[in-house]
């Protein structure tokens, strides 16, 4: 035990127990380093991607407007009109698969969430919950693989086209984001105060009336958050989409056409282009678009969560 001092001022003032204070400071600095590393990683990702992504405009002189609106992506290796970097087909492809997959996943996901919270809470929780959790855990290459071996031939034989298409990409992505949408929508619906339901039922409303007149409006910002988070995941997904979408560089004219997205062109060409070359820098510009989009998704989610009434 520490040496007994005679007066309290010797025992209790801060200068009295250096060793413990030092240990405290050391512990605090260890965890502070982790926190600083998180900040450092985020900032350096933003800075590096920002500078790399702007190089094609600043150093290689690609026109930013043409980059965003041009429809021809050609490295210029096969002769022709020389290199041209028009990223619109990929930007369009990314937005198209994102919105289309959300169109399927949103009703299914929210419907599943309503089933779990309103219609069969007990076995919904017992069965659907683990199902959702397992779906989240399935790696994206497995989704891509199944898309490739099941979905693509199915589309080719029964719907039309080559099979590698916007349609296949959208279906694969919608299955991938379904668990995200469902689990967040479920959390939102569960966090609604029980009184809302009771007062609606007390007024003689049926369950369906309660759901669409009371619960869905009350939970709307949270449900939208669920959809936006799903879209953010779809927008950034690379390999699963790349395996089924066909990877062309042209704008698709129908759902059955092949297409490309920002992530698929990066996945395919990053390894083949020389570091620092124009075509490589153009790919970094595409990555910068991905980064900016994930910031935008965060802003949308922030806006939605500020509108939430119940947490």
């Amino acid at each position: 035990m520490a040496k007994e001092f005679s007066t309290a001022s010797e025992r209790l003032l801060k200068k009295s127990n250096r060793a413990a204070l030092k240990m405290e400071m050391r512990g605090k600095s260890i965890v502070l380093i982790s926190a600083i590393l998180i900040i450092a990683a985020t900032i350096s990702i933003t800075i590096f991607l920002g500078t790399k992504g702007l190089q094609s405009f600043l150093v290689n002189g690609i026109n930013a407007v043409e980059f965003l609106t041009g429809t021809v992506w050609d490295m210029g290796k096969d002769g022709g009109n020389g290199p041209s970097y028009g990223a619109l087909p990929f930007i369009f492809g990314s937005f198209a698969v994102t919105f289309l997959s959300a169109l399927i996943a949103a009703p299914l996901g929210i419907g599943g969430a309503i089933f779990m919270t309103e219609i069969a809470p007990s076995w919904g929780r017992k069965i659907l919950q683990p199902v959702i959790e397992l779906l989240v855990g399935i790696p994206s290459v497995v989704y891509g693989f199944i898309g490739l071996t099941v979905l693509v031939p199915f589309v080719r034989n029964h719907v039309g086209g080559q099979g590698f298409s916007l349609l296949s990409g959208m279906i694969v992505l919608s299955v991938m984001i379904l668990p995200t949408v469902t689990s967040i929508a479920t959390d939102t619906l569960r966090s609604l105060p029980g009184g809302l339901r009771e007062s609606s039922y007390a007024l003689g409303a049926t369950r369906w009336q309660t759901i669409y007149r009371v619960l869905v409006p009350a939970a709307l910002p949270g449900l939208l958050t669920a959809i936006v988070l799903g879209m953010a995941r779809a927008f950034g997904e690379a390999l699963a989409v790349q395996m089924v979408i066909g990877n062309t560089k042209e704008l698709p004219s129908s759902l059955l056409d092949s297409a490309g997205t920002l992530t698929t062109i990066i996945t395919l060409n990053m390894g083949h282009t020389t570091y620092g070359s124009v075509e490589n820098n153009a790919l970094w510009s595409l990555a910068l678009i991905l980064l900016i989009m994930s910031f935008i998704f965060i802003l949308i989610i922030r806006y939605l969560s500020s509108r939430r009434q119940y947490r």
Partner: peptide
């Protein structure tokens, strides 16, 4: 006041204090 120190002061070592 506890003996000769004011316990609410900032310079109190709260760890040593809580032991007493």
């Amino acid at each position: 006041l506890y003996e000769d120190v004011n316990l609410i002061e900032d310079n109190i070592n709260v760890v040593a204090l809580r032991k007493e």
